[in-house]
């Protein structure tokens, strides 16, 4: 009996103190936002492009193309360019979106009724262990609570559960910020070019040393699950590796692509590797090491549409 009494007392104390702590951290402000945001890295503020785009996206809509992936997706695929080619497009890419989190977005937001073609932008960086930045953003900002709690429960990091609790406590709060470069339909546009230092490095052919990317087996497992889920939902899917800059660490590119290929080939899912795109120049078509600027997006998106049409994945409009 004593052991049960001790356990119950401890569980009760922990629960009370935890919710009290969360309430205090939510209520005490720092720079107009709850103080919890200063207690840990990757606690994202409520708001921004993720908050806006998931409220703008209609689950009952009729999209020809939906894009998913990381910032390389939401900055690299302009729905307005696809629109001008005659395809109704929406971009569901979010910051550092891991492939595992893409799975939950497909699960909760997409089916064959609202999406004719799903383009998933793949990038080695989205297959690593560190998913906290992505999960925290989604848990805080997705408009579908079931999707948000699904992401939180599957992240295996208590910090996402804290964010889920915060989401519950800040349900009625307005978003704390918005992003100026958010252009609508899920797309964020940047017109800038590389910084002066990066331009100099590029013209001097100076490479930047990157931290070695380690591919996580769990992400590969979720990649395969996405393919199965799309088949189950009768959702047409293609994977695309969008253009990379001169600074990209190409050392693991081929082994990474080789890891994905068996599953895509077995299930007959097309893959387009635009990582090297002749008409894209790092100095003029990127605004930083990883992201295309609007000029680069224009070239890449046109090339992609042409390719998808050639392969009869998109019909002529």
């Amino acid at each position: 009996m004593a052991i049960i009494r001790h356990i119950l007392l401890s569980v009760f104390t922990i629960a009370v103190l935890y919710f009290l702590g969360m309430f205090v951290l939510k209520t005490v402000p720092y720079s107009g936002k709850p103080a919890i945001y200063i207690t840990n890295n990757y606690y994202n503020w409520k708001g921004g492009d993720t908050y806006e785009k998931y409220r703008e996206f209609s689950k009952t809509g009729d999209y020809d193309i939906v894009v998913a992936g990381s910032s390389r997706a939401y900055r690299g695929y302009s729905p307005f360019l696809f629109d001008s080619a005659g395809y109704n497009c929406f971009n569901l890419g979010t910051s550092a979106q891991s492939i595992k989190n893409t799975y939950f977005i497909v699960k909760h937001y997409l089916d064959s009724a609202n999406c004719q073609l799903l383009i998933i932008d793949v990038f080695a960086g989205a297959f690593t262990k560190n998913q906290l930045e992505s999960s925290s953003d989604l848990v805080e900002n997705l408009n579908d609570p079931a999707a948000a709690y699904d992401v939180a429960m599957h992240n295996k990091d208590i910090r996402t559960l804290n964010i889920a609790t915060l989401r519950f406590l800040t349900e009625n709060d307005k978003p704390y910020f918005s992003k100026k470069d958010y252009s609508g339909k899920g797309y964020s546009e940047k017109g800038d070019s590389l910084s002066v230092k990066q331009q100099t490095d590029f013209f001097n052919r100076k490479k930047v040393t990157h931290k070695k990317i380690e591919i996580d087996e769990e992400q590969i497992r979720y990649f395969n699950k996405i393919v199965d889920l799309c088949m189950e939902k009768k959702l047409r899917v293609v994977f695309v590796y969008s253009p990379v800059s001169y600074f990209y660490d190409y050392s693991i590119h081929h082994s990474f692509v080789d890891m994905l290929k068996p599953s895509m080939e077995m299930k007959n899912v097309p893959f387009y590797d635009f990582s090297i795109c002749d008409s894209i120049n790092t100095a003029y078509h990127f605004y930083d090491e990883s992201h295309l600027n609007s000029a680069g997006v224009k070239i890449f998106n046109r090339a992609l549409v042409t390719k998808l049409k050639q392969d009869k994945i998109l019909s002529d409009k």
Binding site: I14, Y18, G21, M22, N40, N130, D157, I158
Partner: peptide
Amino acid sequence: KAYVLNVMASVLIVFILLFGTFG
């Protein structure tokens, strides 16, 4: 006393939950 020690451990657990750097 046992209940004081339990409360101390509970406070530590709450700190771990709220401020832990997991990974």
